[in-house]
Amino acid sequence: MLIQLLNGLVYGGLLYVLSVGLVLIFGLRRVVNFAHGSLYMLGAYIGYTVASLGGFWLGLVVSVFALTVLGALLDRFVFRPLQDEDPIVTMLVTFGLLLVLEDAVRTVWGKDFLTMAPPPSLSGVLLLTGTNFPVYRLAVIGIAILVAIGLSLWLRLSRVGLYVRASSVDPVTTGMQGVDTERLSATVVAIGAGLAGLSGTISAPLVALAPSMGGSILIDSFVVVVTGGLGSFTGAFIAAMLIGQVHNWGVVFVPSAAPMIPLVLMVLVLIWRPSGLVRAGA
């Protein structure tokens, strides 16, 4: 029971770290990055390769850094030139990017499953209520909590965080106050992509790496973002934890139908509250 709850927290944590990046990007650019799952996958693969050369922690650092840079490029060469277009145009382009990235990864790393070991320092198990639970999974929960705390402190207390919150509500008025929204967007998209890289790398020891791995988590993160209320940070957190639990119990009890359960939950939430759990901007 406790073990399943914790497993749900692990998945919920990964999902939160990935989804909050989508929320950040949506707040600044008003577009949904369909390639976000591919960034997650790319993060896992880069982490895998670097970790095999220089250890897990180096892999984590390099992967997050590489994805952050990629995010800044994504903003500069995709989101910024297309900002005056219909959001659909940008979504189509990021969807195209998703297909390209998936193929690129298949070409570089092959389509066979790859596995990655957790770092030796975290590879043990802990006896919890009579069952062994991997320490690494607890560490993943810890990282997700740190990200959540760090991000909300940054948003609440820092000046840039204030600009991010203001811009998420009303980018035009924020620009009128003298905020350099272009630089802000580049920063935020870079952070969002970096978080996708973080999520991908820390998930690598838990799952088998395959070029299609971005797919299933992308669905769940879309479900999280919409269920939480498009653009809401708090909503994303609550929804990620909820979907994490639901997903995990689904895998345990009805493994073959598990992919459908988060969607069903979302439809129910949306019938109950059409704009999601938390109104955006709150």
């Binding site: 204030l162 600009y163 509500v169 106050q177 003298g178 905020v179 901007g281 709150a282």
Partner: peptide, 19 residues
């Protein structure tokens, strides 16, 4: 009156750059 509804009164003033 274009204020940021989700920010506090204080934050609405802090958001102005270069003061």
């Amino acid at each position: 009156a274009n204020v940021f509804p989700s920010l506090s009164v204080m934050e609405n003033l802090l958001v102005v750059v270069g003061v």
